[in-house]
Nucleic acid binder design. Structure first.
Length: 467
RNA sequence: GCCCCCAUCGUCCAGUGGCCUAGGACGCUGCCCUUUCAAGGCGGUAACACGGGUUCGAAUCCCGUUGGGGGUACCA
């Protein structure tokens, strides 16, 4: 049978790292099996769902490159199907109306000794529908519900530990388990790949499928959770994990997807950074780990640096250009010079880990006056004042009439190093700070070539005056 | 409390009874290269939670302990 999986986000927040990983593993499995990857928006909870987030989720998935098949299913539009299922459940006695309020349920539980859960109060009262009433599923008192998880093996729950859970709220809206069971059946889903936080809900869905006489078997695979540095499930509040935030910080989708694929799984040959197509080919659902994985931003950054360096330079230019027009960039848009950026791009490309770092490497070209990094100035120009004065004097003269090429600038400036027996690193520093404002940046002479003789000499002059 | 899951370097991943004096990657770190910073090259650091079994032999299988996590809603 053809594999059909689904990613079923609830539009209560932006797509976060955990959801992205779940979507990715579903997608990998589907593509690797030649199956289909479907989308379902689980918006049964009108209170929490925010329709405007749905599009943001789609865009995040698109950014990641996780293309889906068919049009997404919206649970908010499938009321009839759920009502039909509930009618069948009620008719067969698998479910019943319950008039207990949450407060009553809780009060009785406390009176019983604190064990949470519904006590079956209305089970055999044969109540009909009514305002404020919910429909509960009649969980068998005995036996157990188990399934063979692809990742974890046999997982079993005693039915006695399961309460008669609500399938329809007093508002008439279906609960997640019900909608889930009905939709997985309707969409002919073959495999459910989701986070381990949903493992306890599986017996309920299984019981529901059974009661609804859904044909065929649904295979489950519960992914290990992605955790924070305290080894707790990533939380939108506590941890900063929205996929969109990573886009804004200059991460490449290829790097993100590749990194996410190494969380809970690893290719047999140990090569972590590789094209998605190879990951698809090597991926095996059954080889996914069972234990939680820490989301290590440092390692993600390393992946990102690798991907940036691996880009053709022209693509690096087109992908980093938006960052040069970002709102917080300190120069007017008309100061941007494509040719200048293209000249520096290959040198910047091998130095950044994030696209957002790019402006900091080339700003001196577009700024009227370079931003002055105080720490750099203090170290090179103040602490090393004597050398700085001598070097800038030398540079001002030597740069005045040499050929304006990397090779000639090199000779012109470093003749000072040779004649005065000073390390080249020491000699280039004052010029770099004078011209770019910082002590780090792209190679100096290439930078000067782009800046031009007049501006270079002007900035050297300004720095000398400041000394 | 109850239920479920998990347990190899700081972190991620290999390892599926002998190839393991446990391998790769990130990080950290030493050296080299070098006009800064990167990148690159060559090294180093560091782990099978504990206790019992099973077996000729266990990181690998079983049991227990401990530890961690998840769930326990008229959220998903």
């Amino acid at each position: 049978m053809r594999v059909r999986v689904r990613f079923a986000p609830s539009p209560t927040g932006y797509l976060h790292i955990g959801g992205a990983r779940t979507a990715l593993f579903n997608w990998l499995f589907a593509r690797q099996q030649g199956g289909e990857f479907l989308l379902r928006i689980e918006d049964t909870d009108a209170e929490r769902s925010r329709p405007e987030l749905i599009d943001a989720i789609f865009r995040a998935l698109e950014w990641l490159g996780l293309d889906w098949d068919d049009t997404p299913v919206y649970q908010s539009e499938r009321g009839d199907a759920y009502r039909d299922a509930v009618d069948r459940l009620l008719a067969s006695g698998a479910a019943y109306w319950c008039a207990c309020t949450p407060e009553e349920v809780k009060a009785r539980a406390e009176a019983r000794g604190g064990t949470p859960g519904y006590d079956g109060h209305c089970r055999d009262l044969d109540l009909g529908s009514g305002v404020g009433r919910v429909v509960r599923f009649r969980v068998p008192d005995e036996g157990s519900t188990s399934f063979d998880d692809v990742i974890r093996g046999e997982v079993s729950f005693d039915n006695a530990n399961l309460e008669d859970f609500v399938v329809v709220r007093s508002s008439g809206a279906p609960m997640f388990h019900l909608a889930n069971a009905v939709d997985d059946a309707a969409q002919n889903i073959t495999h459910v790949v989701r986070g381990e936080d949903l493992i306890n809900v599986t017996p309920k869905v299984l019981l529901l499928r059974d009661a609804l006489a859904v044909p065929g078997e649904l295979v489950f695979a519960h992914l290990p959770l992605i955790v924070n540095d305290k080894r707790q499930k990533l939380s939108k509040r506590r941890d900063d994990v929205s996929v969109g935030d990573y886009i804004d910080r200059g991460y490449l989708s290829e790097a993100m997807v590749n990194y996410l694929a190494t969380l809970g799984w690893g290719p047999p040959d140990g090569i972590e950074i590789r094209p998605l197509a190879e990951i698809v080919a090597a991926f095996r659902l059954g080889d996914v780990n069972r234990s939680g994985a820490f989301f290590d931003v440092k390692k993600l950054q390393h992946f990102n640096g690798e991907y940036i360096r691996g880009l053709p330079t022209s693509e690096f230019v087109t992908r980093s250009t938006p960052w040069l027009f970002a709102a917080d960039v300190p120069w007017a848009a008309d100061r941007f010079d494509v040719d200048a950026f293209e000249a520096l791009a290959p040198l910047v490309q091998e130095r950044v880990k994030l696209l957002s770092e790019v402006p900091g490497y080339v700003d001196f070209v577009f700024l009227v006056e370079p931003v002055l990094d105080e720490a750099s100035w203090a170290k090179v120009m103040v602490k090393g004042r004597d050398l700085a004065v001598a070097v800038l004097d030398h540079a001002a003269k030597a740069f005045a009439d040499c050929e304006w090429t990397v090779a000639d600038l090199d000779v012109a400036l470093f003749s000072y190093a040779d004649t005065h027996d000073v390390a080249k690193g020491k000699v280039q520093a004052p010029v770099r700070v004078a011209v770019t404002g910082r002590s780090v940046g792209p190679p100096l002479f290439e930078s000067l070539v782009v800046l031009g003789r007049d501006e270079t000499l002007r900035r050297i002059g300004v720095a000398k005056d400041r000394l």
